[in-house]
């Protein structure tokens, strides 16, 4: 079964061709890393899966169904910045999704439903390592903690697909290694497919089951406008990583992450 299927997708802005005839099958539970030079359309591709932008030609299917033309709860997202809401506490941010889904008029839960949700949120907050910070505002958290919060907030919706747009790009190496451990664990435990855009090859090969490189093959000035980026490399990680299983190359749980 294929979770995401990309069929002959082109993206053009006016005369500018950005992506050229992409075709791609992403397996269920895969963790795909998209790499490539700046401006090659990685983020554009991610936005198309997200539904924030539409392909000029071609189509994208999610579990065999055409993607709805706008973002929805089946596809979660974590951006490098602006992923969490500054006016809500950590707890409020994590509870927001289920609250919005459950109360279509007020967007708020009350009474027993709220207490149940708060328990669920506390468990999720603990799972990403933010226990004890429930009442802090995002501005009081470090960059790494904010990204942990963004992951928790997105995972509360149990998305089919989690999209990550350079989520750890702004973090220090040490913090980044910690959050990679978390990301691996979450991907193993939560039944989701992940697609991550990154410019960090080490990160791509640390986390992904498959690394896909986008690149403009024709990049002379006079060609730049009429030729977009294509898939130039499609590497499956060996030994294969399978969600929910560990490979012999992974460090044991709780070990110091390799830098």
């Amino acid at each position: 079964m294929s979770a995401i299927s990309v069929e002959n997708v082109w993206k053009e802005y006016g005369d500018q061709v950005v992506l050229e005839n992409l075709s791609l099958q992403i397996a269920d539970r895969a963790f795909v890393a998209l790499v490539g030079p700046s401006g090659c359309g990685k983020t554009t591709f991610l936005r198309m899966i997200l539904g924030q932008e539409r392909p000029t030609r071609g189509r994208i299917l999610l579990d065999g169904q055409p993607l709805p033309p706008e973002p929805g709860p089946d596809r979660g997202v974590v951006y490098q910045r602006y992923s969490v809401f500054p006016h809500l506490t950590v707890g409020g941010n994590v509870m927001l999704g289920p609250e919005l889904r459950g109360a279509r008029l007020t967007g708020r839960r009350f009474g027993a439903a709220r207490r149940r949700l708060a328990d669920e949120a506390r468990a999720m907050i603990a799972a990403v390592g933010l226990a004890g910070s429930e009442d802090k505002y995002p501005a009081q958290l470090s960059g790494g903690m904010q990204q942990r919060l963004a992951l928790a907030q997105a995972l509360m919706m149990r998305p089919r697909v989690l999209l990550l747009d350079e989520p750890f790009g702004a973090l220090d190496p040490g913090i980044r290694a910690d959050i990679h451990q978390l990301m691996k664990r979450l991907w193993n435990e939560v039944p989701m497919t992940a697609v991550m855009v990154t410019h960090d090859l080490r990160e791509a090969f640390t986390l992904a089951t498959r690394v896909i490189a986008l690149e403009r093959l024709r990049d002379r000035p006079e060609e730049r406008e009429r030729y977009g980026a294509r898939i130039t490399r499609d590497i499956s990680i060996w030994p294969p990583r399978v969600a929910g299983q560990r490979t012999s190359f992974d460090p044991p749980e709780g070990a110091e992450p390799p830098l």
Binding site: P71, Y79, R101, T106, G107, Q153, M157
Partner: peptide, 26 residues
């Protein structure tokens, strides 16, 4: 930021809920 609005959409918010819970308080 557009990212915040999109994020709210992925959290199942309607236009009304985005206005009420994301934009209004901000």
């Amino acid at each position: 930021p557009r990212e915040m609005i999109v994020k709210a959409e992925t959290l199942s918010a309607s236009t009304w809920l985005i206005a009420l819970r994301v934009v209004l308080p901000q």
